[in-house]
Design a protein around this nucleic acid. Structure first.
Lengths: 231, 231
DNA sequence: TCGATGCTTCGGCTAGCATCGAACTATGAA
DNA sequence: TTCATAGTTCGATGCTAGCCGAAGCATCGA
C-alpha cells in the first residue's frame, strides 16, 4: 500500500509493557543480563527470552555473550533518544505509570538519561552553563565557548580534545520529560556525568534498574558552587 | 512498580498498523477527515472511529469539528518528530513496508515532512545553504546568517521577521529517514516549502495522503540555480 | 419534513500474542 | 562427573484488541 519505513513494527515492539520496562531499564546505559531484565519487567525468564529475541530482531537492543550470561544493551544512543521522545509525549498526555513509587521525586530531581544527567539538576546545569556563557545556544544547537573549555579544564579536569567523537556531537540538547525543557547530552554531557561519579559527588542508585542519581552532601555543595542558580 | 511516563501506552497506540497509517497520513501536516483517514488505513469507518478516539485520548492527534466532518491533525510538531524518529529506527533495522509502490523513488527524492521539505532534495538544500554560508551549523544547531537573511529576502521574498514564533525555532535540523542525514525544519523550513508551492515550483502529489512532492520543470531549474550542488 | 451523508456506539466474532509450565542446552563450579 | 545456574525452545492456555454488521445521532440540502 504505502512505501516508507514500517513504524508500526518498531512501535509495537515498544508498545508491550514488559518490553517497555526492559527498554527503560536499559536507559541507564548499563548492559543487563536476561534475568535482570526479566525481573525488571516482572515476567518469567521464558517470557523475557521471547521478548528479548523480538527486541533484538527489531535492532533495538544488542546482546553480548559473556560466560553463561547474555548482556543486553540498547543498540544505539538514537534508540534512547526515541524512547525519551515517547516519554515526553506520554508525560504531556498525563499518562504516567500508575504505581508511582516513593522514588518519583528523586527521579524528577536527578536521573540518568542513557549516559548523562537529566531531571531538575540536569536542566539547571544547562541553564547555568548558558548563563555563564560557557556554552552558547543559538536556536537548537549548543556549542562550547573558549571560556567554557577553560572552565571544564580548570574546574572538572575535562579536556576539550577528549570530547571529540566521530559520530556523536559534543553538545546536544535533549528534551527532559519531567521538566519539559532541555538538558545537556552529547559527549560533554556524558563526560560531566562520569566526572561527577569519579569525584563521588553523585552515584547511581543501588537498586538495580533504577535511573535515580543520588548526590552526596559535598557533591550537592560543589554542584551548587559551579551551577547554582545562585543569586 | 516504576515511576515515570508510560511509554508503552503511547507506543502501543502507534504500534497498530491501522493507526500508524493514519499518523503517517497526518505527517503531511494537513488535517484530514475521519473517512479519509479510514481509507488511508484501509479499514471501515467504524473501526477508524475507534482508532481515532484512542489516538485522541492519547493526545497524539486533535480533532476539530466542521459541519458534519471531523478534521484530525497531529496535536503537535513534536509528535511528528517522534514519528520520524521511529521511522529512522525502522529504516535502519531494514523494516520497510512490504508493498513498496512505484511512488517509492519519488518519495525518497522529495516529500513533505510535516510542513517542510524532506528527502534527497531537502538534504541537498540544507547542504547548499551551509556551503553558501547562508546558515551556520555549529554542532547540532542551525542559525541563519546575516547573508542568509539577505538571500531569503532577495531570492525568495521571505522576511526574517516573519519567521519568529514563540514556541518554534526558526531553524532546526530534522533527521531524514531515507537519507540518514539532516534536512531543514523549523519555521524557516516551513516558510520555504510554502514559498515553493506559491511560486508553483513544486506541488504536493494529488493522491490523497501522499507525501510525495512533485517539482515542475521550471521549479526544478530554479531550485537547482539556488541550491544545486552545481559548482 | 425527508433523505443522504459523515460519524459514532454497540455487540459478537476471531486472531494474535503474551504468558507460563515443562523440558532441553550450555556454561561454570565442586 | 555431577550439580547448579543462565538461558532457550516448545506447547497449551487465556485474554485482549482489532474488526465488521447493524443501528443510532447529527448535520446538511432540498
Amino acid at each position: 500500500m504505502k512505501a516508507g519505513p514500517d513504524i508500526a513494527m518498531v512501535a509495537s515492539l515498544v508498545g508491550d509493557p514488559a518490553r517497555a520496562n526492559m527498554l527503560t531499564a536499559l536507559m541507564t546505559g548499563r548492559a543487563l543480563t536476561a534475568s535482570e531484565l526479566a525481573h525488571q519487567a516482572g515476567v518469567t525468564p521464558q517470557t523475557a527470552s521471547s521478548h528479548l529475541a523480538k527486541l533484538e530482531g527489531g535492532r533495538l537492543i544488542e546482546a553480548e555473550k559473556q560466560g553463561r550470561h547474555r548482556y543486553y544493551r540498547l543498540s544505539d544512543p538514537d534508540v534512547a533518544g526515541v524512547l525519551e521522545g515517547l516519554a515526553g509525549l506520554a508525560a504531556r498526555a498525563g499518562h504516567m505509570r500508575v504505581r508511582t513509587g516513593p522514588k518519583d521525586p528523586a527521579l524528577r530531581r536527578a536521573r540518568i538519561c542513557y549516559d548523562h544527567l537529566a531531571g531538575d539538576l540536569g536542566v539547571q546545569m544547562l541553564d547555568s552553563l548558558k548563563k555563564q556563557r560557557l556554552v552558547r545556544q543559538t536556536k537548537q544547537q549548543i556549542e562550547l565557548t573558549a571560556e567554557g573549555e577553560r572552565f571544564l579544564s580548570n574546574s572538572l579536569q575535562i579536556s576539550a580534545q577528549s570530547l571529540a567523537h566521530p559520530r556523536r556531537p559534543v553538545c546536544k540538547a535533549c528534551l527532559d520529560w519531567s521538566e519539559r525543557r532541555h538538558h545537556l547530552a552529547g559527549t560533554l554531557g556524558a563526560a560531566i556525568m562520569t566526572r561527577f561519579t569519579e569525584l563521588k559527588w553523585a552515584a547511581r542508585d543501588a537498586a538495580p534498574g533504577s535511573r535515580v542519581v543520588n548526590f552526596s552532601r559535598t557533591g550537592e555543595k560543589r554542584f551548587a558552587a559551579l551551577f547554582g542558580d545562585g543569586e
